[in-house]
Amino acid sequence: MAAPYERLKSWMHELNLCIRCGYCYELCHLYKSHAYETDTPRGKLLLIYGLLTGALQPDPGMVEKVVQCFYCKNCERSCSSKVSLTKIFTDAKADFLDAGIDFRGLAARTDDDLCSRCRVCQAVCKNEAISFGEDGKKIDIVKCEGCGVCAATCPSNAIIMVEGFGVTRGELRETVRAFLEEV
């Protein structure tokens, strides 16, 4: 097992570069949905900073706040300090798993009873987060960005996404349609 939060520690200077202006949450879907600063990209960076300095302990609620991200990257486009927000969030997920901390996040999950193992989801996953092995299907929750393309294309409706974050099913379908046209 890697030393605790080794990946996140490497981002400490980046956390200092964040001037905490808050411009990152102008277009954050989670923030727009909940209107809590704890759901903002700035908030996630603050929590990670608190974790690294020992000011915060990784309780389940705090961990979920850090990992809940749709990777729309609006925050990164808004950030003129050019902080690599989503890379930091991904490393947080990996570090949490290494530390034995489980989380739900926004990753896709599979209903194994419904899954026909057709592998359409594997083909459309842009992050190569889905694999099939002898143990069946696996979704890598570090790689999965919760985009929902797999869920929209699954013929068996076997993939479960977290909903209720201000993205409607219609908007999700439109995003998926645009993505599929592109590929």
Binding site: L46, A55, M62, K65
Partner: peptide, 14 residues
């Protein structure tokens, strides 16, 4: 809200 995470975030600004 009164979780440690919430209190930590609402104790800071820019």
């Amino acid at each position: 809200r009164s979780s440690p995470a919430d209190l930590y975030i609402y104790g800071a600004d820019a």
